[in-house]
Design a protein around this nucleic acid. Structure first.
Lengths: 155, 155
DNA sequence: TATTGTTATACTCTATAACTATA
DNA sequence: TATAGTTATAGAGTATAACAATA
C-alpha cells in the first residue's frame, strides 16, 4: 500500500492540498456569503442562491431533485423553498403526472433577483481576483473546475 | 480604463474565474461541513473549528481578535464561544491587564478534539483529491494559497 | 467618551424523526 | 408498501441594536 517508513511525496502533496482546501474554502465562503447578504433588497442567502440557480438551469425541478443536487436533506430544501415561495421568487405547484411531486420554477421576479445577485457576487469576486495575474487566474479557474468535478456530479 | 467595445481577454478570464469560484466554493464547503458534522462525538461546526484553530495558533486570544480574524460580528463570536466553553473545549477567563477583555485558550480536551476533527476532515478531503494527478494537486494547492492571500490577511 | 463584550431579537440553515398524501 | 413532501423539534450561525462593564 504505502511506504513503511515516512510519507511518500505523493502523500505529502495530497495532505498539503487537503490542508489548504480546509483552511481557505471556508474563508472564501465567508466573503461570498457576506457579499450576497449585503446586496439588499435582492439579498439572498447562499443556499437560496444555489437552489434558485439549479431551478433556473433545470426548470420544473422537483423538490427531491433540488435536495439531491444541493446535497441537503429534504426538509432543508423544503424550508428553503418556503422562504422563496413566500417572497414570490419561486412558483411551487403540484405535478399533474404525480401529485406527490412539486414542480418548481422561478417567477419573473425570481429570475430578475437571481440574475442581479449573481452579477453582483461575481463582480465583487472579480474585483478581488484582479490582484492576480492572468496566468494565475487561469490556474485558479482550472483548479475550481477540477474541484467541481470532484464534488459535483454534473454541471 | 477598459476597451470601449466588447470585453478584453483580461475581463473574460477574470469573469470566468469569478463564476467558477462562486459555483464551486459553496459546493466544496458543503462537503467539508457534512464531514465535520459526521465526525461524532468530536463533531464540530465549521465556525467552531475555525475559531478553535485560531485560538490554537494564537493562544490567549481575545474575543475581538477571534471575531476579526474569522470575519464575524462580535456577538457571533461570543455565541460560538458560549457553546465551546459549555462543552469544555475552550477556557474563557477575564484578562488581568484589561478586565474588559477575554482570554481564550483551548482546554486539553479542546486540543484533542480539534486535532481529531482536523485530521479527520483532512483525510476525507485527501481521499477525494487522490483522483487528481500530482501536478493537478499542486495546481490546486497553489490556487488555494493565492485565494488565501486574497481573503485572509495573514496565516 | 471609547472599547470590550453580552443580551435581546429575529432570521436562516441544518438534520432527524414523525407524519400526511399519493402511488 | 414505497415515495414525495411537510411539520415538529432542536440546535447552530448570523447580524443589528441595545446594554453593561471597564478603561
Amino acid at each position: 500500500m504505502q511506504p513503511l517508513a515516512g510519507q511518500s511525496n505523493n502523500n505529502a502533496d495530497v495532505d498539503e492540498c487537503a490542508r489548504e482546501v480546509l483552511l481557505v474554502v471556508p474563508a472564501v465562503m465567508r466573503v461570498i456569503r457576506a457579499e450576497m447578504r449585503r446586496h439588499r433588497p435582492a439579498g439572498l442567502s447562499v443556499p437560496q442562491f444555489r437552489a434558485m440557480g439549479f431551478i433556473y438551469r433545470q426548470t420544473h425541478a422537483s423538490l427531491s431533485e433540488v435536495a439531491e443536487r444541493l446535497s441537503v436533506a429534504l426538509p432543508t430544501a423544503s424550508r428553503t423553498m418556503d422562504g422563496l415561495v413566500k417572497r414570490g421568487l419561486v412558483d411551487r405547484e403540484v405535478s399533474q403526472n404525480d401529485r406527490r411531486c412539486s414542480v418548481l420554477t422561478l417567477s419573473n421576479e425570481g429570475i430578475t433577483v437571481y440574475d442581479s445577485a449573481k452579477r453582483h457576487a461575481e463582480e465583487h469576486l472579480a474585483k478581488s481576483l484582479q490582484s492576480l495575474s492572468a496566468s494565475e487566474r487561469e490556474e485558479v479557474t482550472r483548479s475550481m473546475q477540477m474541484l467541481r468535478h470532484i464534488v459535483m456530479e454534473t454541471d
